[in-house]
Design a protein around this nucleic acid. Sequence first.
DNA 1: GCAAGGTC
Length: 748
Amino acid sequence: MDAGRRISYILSDKTSKQKKTKNISYIEFERNNEQNIMVSLSGHILGADFPEEFKDWVKSDLDKLIDSNIIYKVTNQRAYSALKSFSGIDNIIIATDYDREGELIGVEALKFIEPGYTNIRRAKFSALTSQEVKDAFDNLLDVNYGLADSAKAREEIDLLWGAVLTRFFSVTSNRLWKDFISVGRVQTPTLALIVEREEEITSFVPEKYFVINVTFNKGIDFQGVYEKNIKDEDEANKIFNAINGNDGIVKSYKNEKKEVYKPPPFSTTDFLREASRIGVTPSNAMKIAEKLYMSGLISYPRTDNTVYQRSIPLKSIAKKFEGTEFDNEAKMVLGQEKIYPSRGKVETTDHPPIYPVSYPKKALTGAYKNIYELIVRRFLATLYKNAVIEKSDADIDIKGYNFKSSGEKIIDNGWFDIYKYRKLREYKLPELVIGETVKGKKWNMEEKYTEPPKRYDVASLLKLMESLNLGTKSTRHDIIQKLNDRNFATGNPLRPTPLGIGFIKSITTIDSDIAKPDMTAELEKEMDKIAENQKKLDDVVNDSRNMLHSALKGFRGNKEEIKETITSYANKGDSIGTCPLDGGEISLIKFRNFSKIKCSTEGCKINFNLNATGLVQMTDKRCDVCSLPIIKIIRKGQSPEYRCVDPNCEYNRKKLSIGKCPSDGGDLIIRQSRYGKRFLGCSNYPKCTVTYPLPQKGVIMPTGEICRYCGAPLLIMVNGKRKWKFCPNMKCEYNRKDKVEKSESENK
DNA sequence: GCAAGGTC
């Protein structure tokens, strides 16, 4: 159930009714003997844009674009027509999310309701619980126009900087249309983080160091590690020779009980990180969470909040899991004398943390089951007790050198019994007495190397973006996806592409905030001033326009360098091997919709387009037809594909051929239609127009057999575990007769 | 065609 339906359902004591005419959908309900209409908005209704005259990227003057007025276009037609359709309204209550963007969405809606009334109020609730919603509508507030303006400033400044710099970098590097260079307040600093990390890794010089450790024994074996890592080999040898073969004397020993705190309630970022620990990617986890929310199983999944509001009936929710597979866990939680939920650092007023709302009537399966279970276990864990461990630490001396030993013993497993994704580990250390001698058993010196920092994976990047305040709970994973789609970064862990590196190098030629998280921080300050009526929307946007003029001036001064940097990096591509013809370097240069394979030697034949997704490698093999090299394309979960590097070579056509055309004997080839659907077509097109439709999913293989009814080649289809033979001619009798005969004979 | 922010 969406938010609008839930609110009206609560306010009307479950008597609300959904109404739908041709274009308009709304909800009617009665409350306190008054008729109400509820219109669900679902996001912004208006979007900022520039006037038509600035349509052409190459011809538009960017300084004029900066000073242009910003127009607003309807982007949510459904909400717009619903709002437009009513008249004779006495009161308006805005009940959007209680945050900056929510306030703006509400104010956008006011624009489209018949004017002429004065009574506009605002409902403030932070969870869609019965109590909160009813209280909110009994205690209405005023609309906060300043808050809405602060969001509008954000929107206009993002459009101005984004559009102006996107156009500047795209036009300057001559990468237009699908290959444009996208610049934005959130995406560009995020890409810069990925590029900076890659540079740290490539410039990293490993350093050698030595670790000395000793296995001691007192009843049981335990480890002591020399207190320092030693860089100097001579010093390491000196220490090792001194301690080797000797016993130790206990210099200090202490042990104390420590609590291991239970985790805070789930925010979106924490949820996505934990989901990726159990093997579900953030975008998948988000999709699943949205579906669970829509089916009423969990609360709203987009939230920064990590503190349960008082209105959430924690105990009665925990009760819902009695008698389910979480029976034990629920009873553990409910068996406590009092329940003290954990609290995180962030507390917001728009939504509760993510928690389960109900137990599914129909059992969930696959990733849905795992994600739901994660949310349930997290919820119950936040209501249970902290774990307790006994931590012991000792200093042990051998010949004047200090070794550290430590141990951890579980006293009470606490919440770890519920949240099975984490485990407490025990490290044994016997009880020691200061001054006693412990026997040495093994003495060891190890040579190690310092390691470069790790690349960010999607989970750690989400966390970092959150701490730098880049993006919001709803947009962060989209931004990472965008960097992927725009050919700036790839894979997980994320690496920048040559284009990504070249672009960041070129944008950091001048010291502009657009590549740093600072721009968001500054914007936040200005937005707060607007919200508190200390500054006006237009003044803030105009200040930003002036900063943009001067940033643009700076970039213009480096135009040649920017062009050179981006093109040289983008054209360098990734090296995928050496050229078997002349020993040159073969590069794969990626564009948004295709790639180029090119040899570094001037005049070399190898300079072809490549239409393929997946990892491309050179092989030593040569094509039988044209003797150019064969390339290998690797895709996840599929056997590798081999192709001649020349896309027009006969070798590739034969390989793709799935049989002969019954009309003229040409090759039937799997092709893609304009709309992305695959079909079989004759290689003699346009002379021969024979085509056959194909199933859109699964692997299609030739059989070499010919259909005895229509002469088309018979094919085998493999989709998951199922596998069947068919004739691509849908009307052919083969599919009715021969297929039936076969399955009957299998039944015998 | 541009951004980032909402969201069935």
